[in-house]
Amino acid sequence: MILSKIELSGLRKTFGAKTVLNGIDLQVKSGESVVVIGGSGSGKSVMLKCLLGLLSPDNGSIKVDGEEVIGLSPRKRDRINRKFGMLFQSAALFDSLPVWENIAFGLIQGQRMNYDQGRAVALERMAQVGLSADIAELPPAELSGGMRKRVGLARAIATAPEIILFDEPTTGLDPIMADIINNLIVKCVKELGATTLSITHDMTSARKIADRIAMLYNGKLIWTGPATSINCSGNPYVDQFVHGCADGPIAIR
């Protein structure tokens, strides 16, 4: 039996009267790349935040490597979070630190690596994502959107995590830069052998990086299947989303 790397069961989260997640069930196997698609405000980011422990779900279970992570003590939670790397939607780079320190932050502060070693690893990761060492000392504010995403990706993989989460990795990028980021994600994930869970509404990105795609609608995963079958899902909601049609069963409120 193959143990799921990540397993969400009956995950439920409400904010006041609004139910954002209404019983999510999802398994991600080791080494697999799963992409969750869904419209804006459908709860994709909430799902990732619950997985990372940034939000507490109201009900349900989250298992990482078979271990229940809901209700863990901060110390145990920290041990679990060491398995994760994450590329945030806006890259979320630390403004006060130069590029290389952003990338090496988890190594220097989280794993107590010394600054010289941290810098060496950061430069290595920068090369891996196609960034020149010239920008290592620049503050993030001086980088373009595409470069910021690459720095974010370098930071996400710097600690060689077992699981990498991608939150809208191509949002706000032009199609060429989006493709470059998608290629880098595929390459880096393959090199690390990591398990990935991504959320996006960019179908080109989803097709490129996913082994399996799941669609989130009204707080539930309404369809899950291989990335190759997304165009013939047989699900009218998925069809409408994939083809970007205004008319269909998905009501835009």
């Binding site: 945030f88 979320a92 988890g106």
Partner: peptide
């Protein structure tokens, strides 16, 4: 830092 998710990043970098 909070509204640009920079504080959330700490959690993924094993830093309190």
């Amino acid at each position: 830092m909070r509204v640009t998710e920079q504080i959330d990043v700490f959690v993924t970098l094993s830093t309190n």
